[in-house]
C-alpha cells in the first residue's frame, strides 16, 4: 500500500517535470497519451472492474466536448465549462446506465455502441446550438506563446488524469470496487449475496463517463475547433478498450501502461507504414486477444 503510494507520487513527479525541455511534438504526444490514459482508466471501471464491455466512451467524449464548447459559446469561463461537461456526462451516464445495464454481454456492447452514433446525429441536426456539420469554434485562451499554451493543456490533461487515477485507486479499495469484482465473476451470485447490482453497475458507468466528459471538453479547448465526426469517433471507444486489454483489465496501472504502449506503437506504425496502419492496428488487436488475454502486467516477473 505504502509502496504503491510512493510509486504513484514518483510517476506524478516525472509527468510534471516532463514538459521542461521537450519540443512541441513530444508535448503534443504527451498530452494525447494523458488523454487516452483518462479514456482507458475510465473504461476500466465498467469494462475491467464490472466486466461490462462498454463502447460508450466515444459518446461521453463527444458529449463532453460539445457541452464544454456550447457552454463557452454562452459565455461561461473555460474551467466552469469543463466542470459542467463532467456533470453533463455523469448525468447522461446515469440515465443511460439504468436503461442499458439491464442487458448483458454482447447485447450491452451493441447497445452502447450505437449511443455515440445517435448523439452524433442529434448534434448534426441541432445546428442552432452546435453548428451542426460545420462544427464549432472555441475561444483560444490568451497566453504569451504557443509553447505556453501547449504546456497549459498538457497540465490540464494531467490534472484530469490524476483525478481519474485517484478515482480508480479509491474505488479498488472500497465496497464499490469489491462489489464490482463480485458482479464480474458471478452477477447472480452477487445479487443473492446482497449486492445491489443495478446501482453498482450504474455507479461504475457514471465513473466511466465523468472523466471522459471532462477530457472531451479539455480536448475541445485544446484544438479550438470540433465537429461531430471528430469527437464522436468510435475509435475513442475501441482504442480505450484495446489499451486496457493491453495493459491489464481491472488493474490500477494497466490502463496507463496500455495507453503509453499503444500510442507509442501507433506513432511508430503510423510513421513507417502510413498506408497499412489500420491493418497493423487490427493485427495487434487479434494478437492481443489470442496471446495476452490478461495484459502485459500479468507478465510481471516473480508473480505466480
Amino acid at each position: 500500500m505504502k509502496q504503491g503510494v510512493l510509486t504513484g507520487l514518483a510517476l506524478l513527479a516525472i509527468l510534471c517535470a516532463l514538459p521542461l525541455g521537450v519540443d512541441s511534438y513530444w508535448l503534443r504526444l504527451g498530452t494525447t497519451m494523458l488523454m487516452y490514459g483518462v479514456l482507458a482508466m475510465s473504461w476500466n471501471f465498467i469494462g475491467g472492474m464490472a466486466g461490462y464491455p462498454s463502447f460508450a466512451s466515444a459518446a461521453f467524449f463527444g458529449l463532453g466536448a460539445y457541452a464544454g464548447a456550447v457552454a463557452q459559446k454562452f459565455g461561461l469561463s473555460m474551467f466552469i465549462a469543463w466542470s459542467l461537461a463532467g456533470v453533463v456526462a455523469a448525468m447522461f451516464a446515469a440515465a443511460l446506465g439504468f436503461a442499458l445495464l439491464r442487458l448483458r454481454g454482447h447485447y450491452f456492447a451493441i447497445a452502447s455502441l450505437v449511443v455515440a452514433e445517435v448523439l452524433r446525429e442529434i448534434v448534426n441536426s441541432a445546428t442552432d446550438l452546435t453548428g451542426g456539420g460545420k462544427g464549432l469554434n472555441l475561444p483560444v485562451p490568451q497566453m504569451a506563446s504557443i509553447d505556453d499554451q501547449a504546456r497549459f493543456f498538457y497540465y490540464a490533461m494531467l490534472g484530469v488524469a490524476v483525478l481519474a487515477f485517484s478515482a480508480v485507486f479509491a474505488t479498488q479499495r472500497s465496497r464499490l470496487g469489491f462489489g464490482l469484482r463480485c458482479i464480474r465473476q458471478n452477477e447472480s451470485a452477487a445479487d443473492m449475496l446482497g449486492v445491489n447490482v443495478t446501482l453498482y453497475k450504474v455507479n461504475a458507468f457514471i465513473l466511466s463517463g465523468v472523466f471522459v466528459g471532462i477530457a472531451g471538453a479539455v480536448y475541445a479547448s485544446w484544438v479550438h475547433y470540433i465537429e461531430p465526426p471528430d469527437v464522436f469517433d468510435v475509435l475513442y471507444s475501441v482504442k480505450a478498450i484495446v489499451m486496457v486489454l493491453l495493459g491489464g483489465a481491472g488493474t490500477l496501472y494497466g490502463p496507463l501502461v496500455g495507453a503509453v504502449l499503444f500510442l507509442s506503437l501507433e506513432e511508430l506504425v503510423w510513421r513507417n507504414y502510413i498506408s497499412v496502419h489500420t491493418g497493423m492496428l487490427g493485427l495487434l488487436i487479434v494478437l492481443l486477444v489470442l496471446f495476452l488475454p490478461k495484459g502485459i502486467l500479468a507478465f510481471r516477473p516473480g508473480r505466480a
Partner: peptide, 21 residues
C-alpha cells in the same frame, strides 16, 4: 455451487458478511 472463482475463499465469505451481513 456459486462461488466467485477468482477470489479467495476468505473474500467469498467476506463478500457475504459485507453486503448481506
Amino acid at each position: 455451487v456459486q462461488p466467485f472463482p477468482e477470489m479467495t475463499v476468505l473474500e467469498n465469505v467476506a463478500a457475504a458478511a459485507l453486503f448481506a451481513g
